[in-house]
């Protein structure tokens, strides 16, 4: 009954420092928001159980540090991710421009088997600030970029007000799940006694 099986999905959150990655995660997992900014050191990890189409699964959310000095951990951290969330601040053009770097860096480091179809989700955060008056990245522009990268799903959120966060993560979970479906038969070798026992007679690994 593979469909009843519990699944764990690894979700990586990337983006420039200060765009609200940790706040999004806290809003989603703990329904909490703090105005105080605390830079993430290395990475934070949170777990959230999600029900989706009758299945229970666990999101293991890797909230990475935006600062460049932590990027050496990339390979190890990105390995085996089921979905990557790219976050920018709609009030910062630079954070939007950097999405491309984050995406490419991820694809290089994680080297997923099918990079064209690796599930990303893009989030434009902080739509609440100034009632949207300080916004510099238009939704149209963001959606155009997402479309050009293979129709990446796009969400505009406010981690502070809790707007659209749940919806964004629902989509993240759904896409992560899609990418992890393939399954193969597990068929290890069987010992060929003719060779292996002779080999054993001379040397032993103990």
């Amino acid at each position: 009954m593979p469909s009843r099986r519990r699944t764990l999905l690894k979700v990586i959150i990337l983006g420039d420092s200060g765009v609200g990655k940790t706040s999004l995660m806290n809003q989603y997992v703990n329904k909490k928001f703090s105005n105080q900014y605390k830079a993430t050191i290395g990475a934070d990890f949170l777990t959230k159980e999600v029900q989706f189409e009758d299945r229970l699964f666990t999101l293991q959310i890797w909230d990475t540090a935006g600062q460049e000095r932590f990027q050496s951990l990339g390979v190890a951290f990105y390995r085996g991710a089921d979905c990557c969330v790219l976050v920018y601040d709609v009030n910062s053009m630079k954070s939007f421009d950097n999405l491309n770097n984050w995406r490419e860096e991820f694809l290089i480091q994680a080297s997923p088997s099918d990079p064209e179809n690796f599930p990303f989700v893009v989030i434009g955060n902080k739509v609440d600030i100034d009632g949207g008056n300080s916004r510099v990245v238009s939704e149209k522009k963001a959606r155009a970029w997402c479309a050009s990268k293979g129709n990446i799903p796009y969400f505009e959120t406010s981690a502070k007000e809790g707007i659209n966060v749940e919806e964004a993560f629902q989509c993240i979970a759904k896409n992560a799940l899609k990418s992890g479906e393939e399954e193969e038969l597990y068929l290890p070798d069987t010992i060929d006694v003719g060779t292996s026992s002779q080999q054993r007679a001379t040397g032993c690994e103990c």
Binding site: F45, T47, T58, Q60, I61, S72, L73, F77
Partner: peptide
Amino acid sequence: KYKLAGFSATLHAVISFVES
């Protein structure tokens, strides 16, 4: 072990940090 996924990731981070 699923509820401990975050803890598991932390252990991974410790190992990866030294490995890096």
